[in-house]
Computed example of a mutant assay.
Amino acid sequence: MRVVMFGYQTWGHRTLRALLDSEHDVVTVVTHPASDHAYEKIWSDSVADLADRHGVPVVLRNRPDDEELFRLLKDADPDLIVANNWRTWIPPRIFGLPRLGTLNIHDSLLPRYAGFSPLIWALINGEKEVGVTAHMMNDELDAGDIVVQRAVPVGPKDTATDLFHRTVDLIAPVTTEALALLASGRTEFTPQDRSLATFFHKRSEEDIRINWDWPAEALERLVRAQSAPYPAAFTFHRGRRLEILSAVVSKGRYGGTPGRIFYREGDGVVIVAGADARTGRNHGLALTRVRTGDGRELPAGEYFTSMGGYLTARP
Rank of each mutant, 00 (worst) to 15 (best):
V26N: 05
G155C: 09
D193N: 15
K202C: 00
M5F: 15
W11I: 14
L123W: 04
D65P: 04
T133M: 08
I94Y: 06
N282C: 03
R221C: 02
R203I: 15
D25Y: 06
R150T: 11
A172C: 06
G55D: 12
T88Q: 09
G7K: 11
R53Y: 01
L119V: 01
Y310R: 11
G126S: 03
L100M: 05
I171S: 04
W214V: 00
D142K: 03
A180E: 15
A172K: 14
D139P: 01
T279H: 08
F262D: 08
A48M: 07
F189M: 09
Y310V: 07
S204G: 10
L219D: 11
A286W: 13
L19Q: 12
P229S: 00
N104E: 09
V270D: 10
D25N: 13
I171R: 01
W11Q: 14
L179F: 09
R260Y: 09
D267F: 12
S44W: 07
T288M: 09
G96Y: 09
I42M: 10
R63H: 15
A122L: 00
D49E: 15
G239D: 03
V29K: 01
V154M: 06
V272E: 07
D267T: 09
V152F: 06
N85W: 13
P111M: 02
D294G: 05
I120D: 00
V82M: 08
A197Q: 15
N138G: 14
S22F: 06
A83K: 03
D75F: 12
I146N: 05
V4E: 02
E68L: 15
L97R: 00
Y230S: 09
A76Q: 14
G7W: 11
L100T: 01
T167R: 06
E302T: 08
E297N: 10
R240K: 14
A34R: 14
K74S: 14
A114M: 05
S35Q: 14
K128V: 07
R296H: 11
V269C: 13
R53K: 08
H201Y: 04
H165M: 04
P111A: 03
F70E: 15
A34G: 12
E206D: 13
T257L: 06
Q226E: 13
A300T: 10
D213M: 07
S117A: 14
T176W: 06
A172H: 07
D65G: 11
E302A: 00
N125L: 08
G301Y: 02
T292G: 08
W43S: 12
R194Y: 01
D207T: 14
A134I: 06
G259I: 01
T28P: 00
A143M: 04
E23W: 03
G293F: 11
S184Y: 14
R112C: 04
R99L: 08
G259S: 08
F200M: 07
G55S: 07
R93D: 15
G255V: 05
L182T: 07
L181A: 11
M5G: 13
A48I: 07
V58D: 05
V29C: 13
S22R: 02
H283F: 12
T312M: 11
D79H: 15
I90F: 04
A51R: 11
S35D: 14
P215I: 00
W89S: 05
R53C: 01
G308N: 10
I94Q: 04
A218V: 13
V30C: 12
